[in-house]
Design a protein around this nucleic acid. Structure first.
Length: 209
DNA sequence: CATATGATTCCA
DNA sequence: GGAATCATATGA
């Protein structure tokens, strides 16, 4: 037994800094299929989950992005160096996990909206939805600004297979006007753990039977 | 200081 | 359809 950080034949090692030094629009697509690894507590098993849904948030010009308000206490991490976690509280009760991308000062990030359990998670843990996955993986605001490249509590490991990817508009950003319509959400079209499953094709006359 | 609101989820 | 729940942003 080689320990917790093994999945199939692929060892789980952190992706390098350079991986995250790309426009959030590029990184959001690339992250679908990668694996998010969290060490909940010293001595307990790693929690591993495959990222199946992401959204790109592209800096101050993007009116749906938190960076639109400029550099403040809240956006400090978002405006920091890529490869770090940006974790924020939404609606007073849920934590959202993001990966800072592109370059220091750009305000780009990728929101992880859904994962599917690989190992170390309770069998009934719900991981579809940004608030649910952080709860299942025990990611909180205390993890804000953590370096995902340094092999600390949280890191991201490469894909072990290439998913088929679908694209849509981002969720929950209607306030952002035309920016709400940008096709900047990416998800694994074969995953059953996407937060908003694509409406199933009903065929020309409805082909349920 | 007061008020509005959100990158959501759950319940009726 | 509507509530829960609170840190942050904005304006007086």
């Amino acid at each position: 037994m080689n320990g917790a950080l093994e999945s199939g034949t692929a060892e789980l090692v952190p992706l390098p800094r350079a991986y995250f030094e790309r426009d959030a629009l590029v990184l959001a697509r690339a992250l679908v299929g990668t694996r998010l690894v969290v060490m909940p507590a010293r001595g307990s098993a790693a929690r591993v989950a495959r990222i199946v849904e992401t959204e790109a948030y592209r800096g101050p010009r993007d009116r749906a992005c938190h960076a639109r308000v400029g550099l403040t206490k809240r956006t400090r991490t978002l405006y920091g160096p890529p490869g770090h976690a940006y974790v924020f509280l939404i609606y007073g009760m849920y934590d959202c996990f993001n990966v800072v991308s592109f370059a220091d000062g750009k305000g780009h990030a990728v929101l992880v909206r859904a994962v599917e359990p690989v190992s170390g998670l309770a069998g009934d843990a719900s991981t579809a939805g940004p608030g649910r996955l952080t709860r299942a993986l025990e990611i909180t605001r205390a993890d804000d600004a953590i370096d995902l490249v340094a092999g600390e509590r949280i890191f991201i490991a490469a894909r072990d297979r290439r998913p088929r990817i679908a694209v849509s508009a981002r969720v929950g950003v209607a306030y952002a006007g035309e920016w709400a319509d940008k096709p900047w959400r990416f998800y694994d079209r074969d995953s059953a753990h996407v937060s908003r499953p694509p409406r199933r094709s009903i065929g020309r006359h409805g082909d349920l039977g």
